[in-house]
């Protein structure tokens, strides 16, 4: 017993080091699987508050660009207004709908929530964004995030009370189901960590003809992203040596360098299909 105590006393520094190292390594391997951890909620909240202060200053420098892009989006939306289109009148009886309820609410599937970006990085191996909108403002885990032109940015991985963390497309573990708009072939979008302007589209059969400039959109197979959100355009096609599948460089449509505002897309009809799938899997077990 005395020897054990003596041992501990002599090697206390080393044991202390091992203990701290153990804690940090535990954090590395537990956070990477995207479990919401207790410390990440608190640390995220505090870091978010500090980042928020800085981004309020930084946003002034980006005001002009933000304004320009909002103008463009607004113009696009104005062009979709009903009064922009006029057909020659064929039936001229206008009638008041007797149902005073907006029936489209029941059918709504996707809801857009705006959020301000307070933290962003592009230079690291695994990049995250931090948004000033959290649990109390209706954000949940696994929601899709797009920029103001509705191009894919990433998905939410962690939420605290007022802030949320987005895993951007520029992350080694990000994986988005994508589709070539030209022929509807699906593949998946990953990032190789090289250039923040380019992501990789893989798992496309090699005999499919793809040309630079082809549009890549979301496939809509996951319950996160709606169908047809723009991810980017094909830049270069690499045919792999074994010739089975091709991977291609895709220029991202979203500009990750200056994200000021983003939209969080909430899927309101997520429950039913997933419940159905669960039930089906249970009966087949």
């Amino acid at each position: 017993m005395r020897n054990i105590l003596l041992f501990i006393r002599i090697y206390f520094n080393f044991l202390f080091f091992l203990c701290l190292m153990g804690i940090s390594l535990f954090m590395v391997f537990s956070y990477n699987r995207y479990q919401h951890t207790a410390y990440s909620a608190v640390a995220g909240e505090v870091a978010g508050r500090i980042s928020n202060q800085f981004s309020t200053v930084e946003s002034y420098f980006e005001l002009k660009r933000t304004n320009d892009s909002l103008m463009k989006v607004n113009a696009r939306l104005y062009n979709q207004l009903k009064n922009d289109f006029e057909l020659p009148d064929t039936v001229s009886n206008s009638r008041v709908d007797s149902v005073r309820m907006d029936t489209s609410i029941l059918a709504r599937k996707y809801l857009y929530l705006p959020a301000r970006v307070v933290g962003n990085s592009v230079s690291l191996e695994n990049n995250y964004l931090e948004l000033h909108r959290g649990l109390q403002q209706g954000v949940e885990k696994d929601l899709a995030v797009t920029d103001i032109f509705n191009n894919v940015v990433g998905s939410i991985v962690d939420v605290s009370n007022n802030y949320s963390v987005v895993m951007s497309l520029l992350h080694r573990q990000s994986n988005v189901s994508a589709k070539l708009k030209r022929n509807g072939v699906t593949g998946s979008i990953i990032w190789d960590g090289v250039d923040p302007n380019f992501v990789i589209l893989k798992d496309i059969p090699a005999d499919i003809k793809v040309f630079p400039g082809d549009t890549v959109v979301t496939s809509g197979f996951s319950d996160k992203f709606p169908y047809g959100l723009l991810i980017g355009t094909v830049w270069k096609v690499d045919h792999e040596k074994n010739g089975q599948v091709a991977s291609m460089k895709v220029k991202t449509a979203a500009n990750f360098y200056n994200l000021q505002y983003v939209y969080i897309i909430k899927n309101l009809q997520k429950q039913e299909p997933s419940q159905l799938l669960n039930r089906f899997q249970k009966t087949n077990e």
């Binding site: 080091f17 390594l25 410390y39 995220g44 690291l124």
Partner: peptide
């Protein structure tokens, strides 16, 4: 060592890479 731990953890909270810089 404690200071190292705290410094690393603070940076990790910003880059969301919990544990890496701490270690």
């Amino acid at each position: 060592m404690i200071l190292g731990f705290v410094l690393g953890f603070c940076l990790d909270a910003f880059t969301k890479s919990y544990g890496m810089h701490t270690a």
